[in-house]
Nucleic acid binder design. Structure first.
Lengths: 224, 224
DNA sequence: TAGATTGTTAATCGATTAACAATC
DNA sequence: TAGATTGTTAATCGATTAACAATC
């Protein structure tokens, strides 16, 4: 019953993380006119292990690579796109039209990955009824109802941590099955709902920590 | 020589990811007036293993927990903040004042984690010399020079993937030692530089994939 | 005291890397 | 053919979980 921890659809989380990186890399190599590519070359350029590259590719490729020549770049791109579902667009709603929320609303980049934000919700009456780009900001009251009626399955949470769990519950009530959470908080959800944490605090923590440690080492080294 | 892969300052990456989650959780419990807390309770609420919680705490806590009573909530909060360096602020620059970049510029939340964005750079002359909130957007020419002069060690990359590597190189030239990369691309950096990828494409891929798989399963189940 | 909880050592699990036969 | 590269099986490594003695 605790399946979804490491695997999403039979593929390890780590592999899933690398696929978009391969994808972008291959697109670039393709635009340079490269036709074939081998695992060792990919591994070298992306600083990965070549066996790992081969195994990742084996998870998604529909045709095998050829010894000596490697893989067909264009095929690999297609296979990754197909596997990640870049072509079947999912509609999403965003809750919390603060600065981060508005940025995501106006960000074009997501459609490339098959996700389209169609509208936003915000508890603040002043924000509601405004528009960001083409997208309406609606009052929270309409959330569950609209999600259900429009058959929306992805919710993006950009509210402060305090209200994130409540928003999460309401999204789930509205039929949302996948949640992209920008609040630095653990969300409790039913088993059938996937939570994807975009935890910026984590990244910042890692950065600060690294600088702190290296500064400390440097100070020690210098005898300062 | 390949140390920094899993560990940042002696602590495993996974533990580092959980620390901000504990931190926020403990702040909430503290605000509820809770004085002591035990690992099993934390584990239950955050859906983690209790031994894992205890080990994570052991990495950062300066005083041991007491059998039967557990840990002092306030001490734990202090210890995590101290460990993650929330108190020693690092200045950062941001490169790429598109919609995402502007959002991060105007986002208040980072200062809480010890990172302050002091200015931004953009190649577009029209954007340069504008301001977002209190923060100047400056032309790219000044990047290396200003980073050096202001002794800035964190660079945030929000340019399109095509120019990310070039921007990265220039940040490193400017003396930046930690890079927060929002472009969906692998960055090559010298050994002493830490790259933290905030790979939104990964999250979206996981979400899409999950929905696709569960829809597929449902369709199979229904015989549709 | 009895029992909940700690910290730690040992067992398990998953992901990465190495070794190698197959093949174009 | 010779050798680069594939796919796969086995070994290693790290992180998670289980087991347990110590203790308040």
């Amino acid at each position: 019953m605790e399946e979804k921890k490491h695997l999403v659809g039979g593929i390890s989380r780590k592999t899933l993380e690398r696929l978009p990186v391969y994808h972008h890399y291959l697109e670039r190599r393709d635009s340079e006119g490269l036709v074939n590519i081998s695992a060792p070359v990919i591994a070298l350029d992306l600083q990965l292990n070549e066996v790992q590259v081969r195994k990742d590719i084996a998870m998604v490729a529909r045709s095998a690579g050829k010894p000596k020549t490697g893989y067909v770049v264009k095929d690999l791109i297609d296979d990754i796109e197909e596997f990640l579902g870049y072509h079947n667009t999912n509609q999403a709603v965003l809750v919390g039209a603060g600065s981060l929320g508005k940025a995501l609303l106006s960000y074009r980049g997501f459609e490339q990955y098959g996700v389209e934000i169609v509208m936003a919700f915000d508890g603040d009456a002043k924000k509601a009824e405004q528009k960001v780009g083409e997208k309406m900001i609606l009052p929270m009251e309409k959330l569950e109802n609209l999600c259900r009626r429009m058959n929306i399955h992805i919710g993006i949470i950009t509210v402060p941590a305090d209200s994130a769990q409540e928003v999460c519950d309401r999204l789930v009530d509205g039929g949302v099955r996948a949640i992209w959470n920008f609040a630095p908080i653990h969300l409790n959800v039913p088993d059938h709902v996937l939570v994807q944490n975009e935890n910026m605090a984590v990244s910042l923590a890692a950065l600060s920590k690294y600088l702190y440690e290296t500064d400390k080492d440097a100070a020690r080294g210098n005898g300062v």
